[in-house]
Design a binder for these strands. Sequence first.
DNA 1: CGGTAAGCGAGACGGTACGTCTAGTCTTCCC
DNA 2: GGGAAGACTAGACGTACCGTCTCGCTTACCG
Lengths: 188, 188, 188, 188
Amino acid sequence: MTRGRPRDTAIEGRLLAAAAEELRRGGYEGLSIDRVAERAGVAKTTLYRRWASKAELVVALIASMREEIPFEPSDDPRGDLTTLVVTIAAGLSSTPTSLIADLAAASARDPRVGESVRALWADRHGAVTAVVAKAQQAGIVLSHVAPAVLVDQLVGPLYYRLLVTGEPLTPDYARTLMLSVLGPEESP
Amino acid sequence: MTRGRPRDTAIEGRLLAAAAEELRRGGYEGLSIDRVAERAGVAKTTLYRRWASKAELVVALIASMREEIPFEPSDDPRGDLTTLVVTIAAGLSSTPTSLIADLAAASARDPRVGESVRALWADRHGAVTAVVAKAQQAGIVLSHVAPAVLVDQLVGPLYYRLLVTGEPLTPDYARTLMLSVLGPEESP
Amino acid sequence: MTRGRPRDTAIEGRLLAAAAEELRRGGYEGLSIDRVAERAGVAKTTLYRRWASKAELVVALIASMREEIPFEPSDDPRGDLTTLVVTIAAGLSSTPTSLIADLAAASARDPRVGESVRALWADRHGAVTAVVAKAQQAGIVLSHVAPAVLVDQLVGPLYYRLLVTGEPLTPDYARTLMLSVLGPEESP
Amino acid sequence: MTRGRPRDTAIEGRLLAAAAEELRRGGYEGLSIDRVAERAGVAKTTLYRRWASKAELVVALIASMREEIPFEPSDDPRGDLTTLVVTIAAGLSSTPTSLIADLAAASARDPRVGESVRALWADRHGAVTAVVAKAQQAGIVLSHVAPAVLVDQLVGPLYYRLLVTGEPLTPDYARTLMLSVLGPEESP
DNA sequence: CGGTAAGCGAGACGGTACGTCTAGTCTTCCC
DNA sequence: GGGAAGACTAGACGTACCGTCTCGCTTACCG
C-alpha cells in the first residue's frame, strides 16, 4: 500500500560503516551525526529518516556488528574454555576501552541500546556457558555452583579490570582465572 | 603561604547539592554545568576552580554521597567477606546504573578521572583484599591463587552484571559468589 | 498530438486554494510547498508539474486572486475618487500587512512575480488614473501635473504608511489625502 | 553595574562587514548566518548574542550603513525640500530594492524589527517634516493640510514606485512631486 | 484492443540553513 | 588571590524547506 520511491538499500550499509569507523575512533561520545552522514556521502536528513537519534543509530550499528564467531567444542572442555576466555580477553583488550565503556553507558541510558549490546556479547558468553556446563557434567569442575555464576567469575573479572581497575588483560591473567575456577589440572 | 581571599567553604556544599539534584533529574547526560552553577547561585568559574571537568564534579559528588561504612574485621573472615560483598552489591544496585557506567566511560577517556573513580572504590576493595588475604592465611581458602584474583572474582561479577548483562544484584547472588570462591562452609 | 493521461483540471484549483490559505496565514515566507501539496491532497510532483518554483506558484496564485471590482464612474469625479481611494485603503488595511510586504519582497526578487503582482493592482490603480484624468479635464484639479503623479500621491501614501511607518489607514486619512491633492471643495 | 567580561567591540564590526559582503553577493536570501560568522572568524553563538535572528542582523547592518547626512536648513525651504527629497530618492534607488522590501516584510512580521527599520528612516523623514512645517509657516505652502500628510505625499510615492509599481526613481520625478505639492514657484 | 505516453501518489534524496544547546576557557571588575 | 558575571570558541543537534528523483499505478488516446 505504502509506495513511493524505494529506499536506497546501499545507503544503510554505507551509513553503518561510517558510523562504525566513527565509533571506533572516538567512541559513542565522539560519534557525530554530521560526520557520519558526510563520511557516508549522504545527506543528514537521509540518516535521520532511518534512525531518529544518535542512540538509535548506535543500536542498529551494534546489532550489525555481531560477527558470527564459529566455535567448535572439542573433547577437551578445559582446553576449550581456556581458548574461549583468552580469546575474549584478547578481543576486549584489542578494542578501545572507551568504546566498550561508552556502550555500557549507552546501554544504561537506553534499554533498547542495552538489548542490542547484550545481543552483541551473547554468542561468546553463550559458548562459554555451554562449555562450562559440559565441564561440570564431565566432573572436571567439582563445584555445585550454577554454570552461569562460574561464567560470571570467568568473564566478569575481564570487564571489571577493563572498566573499573584499569589493569591489563593479559593471556596469563585469563589463565589464572581459569585455574582459580577449575582448580589445578590433575595429572593423568 | 596561602594568600588572597579564602574560599567560601559553603559554596562547595551548595554546588554538590545542586549537582545532586541535577543528576537525580536528568542523569549524567542531563547534568549541565551552567545549570548547576546557576542553581547554586555561583559563577561557573567558581565551579571550575574546584573541579576541572564535569566528570570530576560528578566524581566528587559520588564521593560525597558515599557513606563511610566503617568496617571492623572480626575473627570470622568468611562472615566478614560475606558482609562486605553483600554491602558492595547493595551499594551498587542502589546507585543509578547509568551513573556508574558514565563514570567508567569518563575514566576510560580521561586517566585523571579514572584515578579519581578508582580512589572512590579503593576503600571497599581494599577491605575485601585484606580479608581475603587473611582468610587465605587462616587456611579457609585453599586456593593458591593470588588474593587480588579472588577479589576480582568476587567483585568483578557484580560490575559485570550491572554494566554488561543487566541482571540484578541480589544479596543471594553475592552469597553465591562467596560460596563459589570459598567453597562450602565446613561444619564444625 | 497530446498523448497520455490528461491533467486533472480540478487539481489546479485545489492547489491554488490551498496556497491562498497558506499565504493568508503565514505570508510568502510561511508558505511551504510541502504543506500546500498536502493540504490540497496532492503529490508534490503534481504541483511542480504545474509551476516550477514557489515563486511561480505565487505568481499564478496572485493572478487568480484578481477580483474584477467593477467600478462605474459617475458624473462626480471628486466623489468617485473619494470612493476609490477609501476603498483601496480599506482593502489594504483588511489584508495582512505581512502578506503585502512579502509580495513586494517577492516582486523585488523575481521580476515575473513583480509583473504578476503589479497586474493585481492594475485594475484599481487604472481606475484611479482614469478618474483623475477626467477630473483634471473637468477643471476640478488645477494642477498641471501628470495624472500618474497625482495617483502616486493618492495611493503611494497608503502603501507608505502600511509598509514603512506602520500608521493606520483610516478612511479619514484617505479623505485628507484627497483634500490635499484636489484642494478644498468649492461651495456652489 | 555592568559586570562580567565586556564584549569585544571589534567583533561587531567584523560581523557587520562580513554580513555586508554576504548581502552584497547573494542578497538577503543568500545571506547565511553560518557563513557570516565564519567569515568574521567568530563563533555563531557570538553572533546570536548580538542579534537574535537574521532579520535583526540585517537591520543592524542597514543601520550601520546609513551615512549621517548632515542637513543644514537654509533660508530657502523650497530648495531645502528639493534637496532632501532628491537625496532620499537617490538613496533609495541606490539600495537594492529587494533589501528594502525584505526589511518591510521583516517589519511586518516582527514589531521589534519594524521599530528598528523605522528608526532607520527617522532622520531623513524628520528633516523633511521640519522643513515642510517651516515652509508652511513661511506661507510657501498654502495648504492647510497637516505637514505629516504632505510628507507622506512627498516620500510615500518614492516607496510606492520602488516597492509596488517598480518605476524608476529619477531626480526629475522627485522634483515633480515637489512641484505638485508646493505648487509652481512664483517668479519674483 | 493493446501499446504508449503522460498524469499521479508516495516518498526518498541532496543540500542547505536555522536557532539552540553544551563544555570549557578567558577577561574584567570587585572584594 | 577568590568570586561574580558573562563573553567567547567550537561544534553537535534535530528540524525545516526546496526542488529533484524514482518508483508503481492509472488514465487516456492512437493505431
